Every structure is written in structure tokens, then in C-alpha cells.
Amino acid sequence: MTLDLEGSHREALGTFDGRAALVTGASGGIGRATARALAAAGAQVIVADMAVEAGEDTARTIRAEGGTAQFIACDVSEPEQVSALLEQTMAAFGHLDVLINNAGISGGAQRLHEMEIDAWDRVMAVNLRGPFLCAKYALPHLMKRGGVMVNIASTYGLIGAPQAPAYCASKGGVINLTRQLAVDYGPSGVRVNAVCPGYIDTDMGGQRGRLDPQQAVAALERRESNAARQPLGRQAHVDEVARVVVFLASEASSFMTGSIVTVDGGCTSTFNYNQ
């Protein structure tokens, strides 16, 4: 059977004409790729991030590619900043159809008893409090439009992984928050799903840039070695995740809500983990 990608099929899979999207953590990595993909599909995009220069670059790139984008600086862990972000989004586009909760930090690598309390709190503030705040201020607008929320979780929210206690806990929280929001807001016409990326070819938060060169090389080699042990045998490109996010934000996924979608090359299907 050959799929017909013309007409209504192509429209369902790809067009976001007249729709407005807000992508947090969009200065790089999955967030940047998702913002570009949504804009290429016709969405007006708000690029939100704490990294002003990189965030502005994402917005400029989208505009250079023929899309519509505006950068707004925001720390998603701060209620006042998130409230202002939504106010500015409404001022820019007048409505909101899609929220992508992507902003996140890794928190470094250590066992729990070695972790500073402030470091734990910061991971929770960005990775779990951030989606809560963005959802809180966005949902009234999404309900008016029958909108969609996609939360970027992680395979580390589904399994226990070495030396990542705060990250695992925060992403596990995002996963079950996704399910709970799907229950409460489905009757209001809002769909809420989550994507769990596995090994992605990206440097979250410039983490490797904070290591000395030898440590940075070792960190990358460790990720590539782990990725090589999974069924597809490699890390993903950010665009491979962005395409799934855009699908979940589109009408092609119209009967999906509360779904937790892995984009992980099969890594959570195996016990093949090399620390």
C-alpha cells in the first residue's frame, strides 16, 4: 500500500499555517531544530531561552529561511518571567496553538549523596517546575484554540541511569505530569503528549564546553560508545527528534494524548548499558 501524501494527507502531516507555537529552550539542540521545523511547516514561532545570543540566532535563522519567529528571553523556572513570556506571545501573535516544553538541564554526573542540594533544586526548577509554569500560563490560551502541548522528557525518565539522580527524577515527573494533564485537559480540547529522546547528537547546555578538552572528548566517546550498543547503533540527529515533535503537534496525531513516545534507537528495549 502506498500512502497518498498529497492533499489532505500532506496538510494533516505538515501545515501549521495560521498557528502560533512557543518553543522553550530553543537556542540550540532539539529546541532549535523543533522551532525551525514548525516554522518551515508554516507556524509563527516564539523562540524562548535564557541564552540571548543563541536564541536570537535561532529566530534570525528561521526568518532567513522564510519563516516567522521572534525571540523572547525567559528563565522558565521564574513565574514572573513565564507570565511575561505568555503576555508577549499574545501581543506578538494574538493566540497560541502549540506549546513545546523543551528547556532542560542535565545537572552533571554524580551519585545522589555527592550532589549539592542547590544543584538538585536547580535541575528540578528548570526541568519540572519549568513545564509546570509554562503549562499553567499557556493552558488558558490553548483551551481557547483546541491546542497541543508536547513535553520533552527523556529515556532517563523511564529507566534508572547512572549518576543522574535529579535528571532521572525530574524527567520521570515530566512523564507523569504529561499523563495527568492529558486527563484533565482532554475534555477541554487540549492534547498533551511527551517525547523521550535517547542518545542525541547534541551538547545539552554546553556541558562539554565546561570540561577540559580531554574530559570533553572522553564524554563524547562515552556517549557514542553507549549509543553504539543499542539496536540502531548510533546517536540520533536533532532533526530526527524534531520531526516526531512536529507530528505530535500536528493534526496527524489527533487521537493521541497522554502518549509517551520514545525516540531512542531502541535503547530502552535492551539491558545493554555500558557505564
Rank of each mutant, 00 (worst) to 15 (best):
Y137A: 11
G94V: 10
D121L: 13
Y137G: 09
A125G: 08
E116W: 06
T58H: 05
A51D: 09
D121P: 07
G94A: 04
A64C: 06
E53Y: 08
R60I: 02
G42D: 12
T58V: 09
L86G: 02
R63P: 00
A35N: 01
T89G: 05
Q81V: 10
A33K: 01
G107D: 09
F71Q: 03
L112H: 02
A69K: 03
Q110T: 13
L128A: 10
R32D: 10
R111A: 13
A51I: 03
A48D: 01
H95M: 05
I105R: 08
T15V: 09
I117R: 12
M90T: 14
E65Q: 13
A35D: 07
R19A: 00
S83E: 15
Q88P: 08
T89H: 02
S83T: 11
A41D: 11
F93V: 10
G25M: 00
G28H: 05
S77C: 05
E53F: 05
G107Y: 06
R19F: 00
L139D: 00
T61M: 08
V47M: 07
F71I: 10
L96V: 10
A41I: 00
I72L: 15
F132I: 07
G42C: 12
L86I: 15
I30D: 02
E116A: 15
A109L: 13
S83L: 08
N127T: 03
A103W: 09
Q44D: 13
A48Y: 01
